[in-house]
């Protein structure tokens, strides 16, 4: 070293290696943290408008069944869950529609519309619901769930608003 305010060769190399190492550490460290954490905080769309059929295809006055499938994606695993329900058009008015879920509120069996009984019957424990979804007999604690938010688009498709429970 010729004078005290000049950096020695050794110190220069030390500082340079430290600086380059630091930059490399950050450049590699940030991606690694993102790589490990990102899937943990990913949000899945839990709600959607789902088309269930042409409005004109549903007969007025009689509950007609519909069904749809939602697929959940977790990484490379896809889980499909099917849902179903009944559409009851009370009149020509596209606002006068009652849409019920076919999931029994007792133990989640699928109820079916029975024309002769004029009610929804559950095959598991003989529960009976009225055409409005009210419990008439059997173990269910609550009436059938309703899809209250629905709309008809310009092509005449009936859509329901679905929210994951």
């Amino acid at each position: 070293m010729t004078s005290s305010n000049r950096m020695s060769r050794r110190d220069f190399i030390k500082v340079t290696i430290g600086a380059i190492g630091g930059v490399m550490g950050v450049l590699l460290g940030v991606p690694v943290v993102g790589y490990l954490l990102q899937p943990a905080f990913r949000k899945q769309a839990a709600e959607a408008w789902i088309p269930i059929g042409k409005l004109e295809a549903f007969t007025i006055g009689i509950p007609s069944p519909f069904s749809f499938t939602r697929t959940k994606v977790n990484g490379w695993e896809r889980t499909a869950t099917s849902y179903g329900g009944f559409v009851l058009r009370r009149s020509e008015d596209p606002k006068e529609i009652l849409i019920l879920s076919s999931r029994c509120t007792h133990l989640s069996c699928r109820v079916n519309w029975n024309e002769a009984a004029q009610g929804y019957l559950c095959p598991c424990h003989d529960a009976k619901f009225s055409i409005e979804g009210e419990v008439l007999s059997g173990p269910p604690p609550e009436p059938l769930e309703r899809y209250n938010e629905f709309k008809v688009d310009e092509d005449g498709n009936l859509l329901i608003f679905f929210e994951e429970a």
């Binding site: 690694v32 993102g34 790589y35 990102q38 899937p39 990484g75």
Partner: peptide
């Protein structure tokens, strides 16, 4: 395609 920086690792 999905994980952040998975392509890099």
């Amino acid at each position: 395609n999905d994980v952040a920086f998975g392509w890099l690792i």
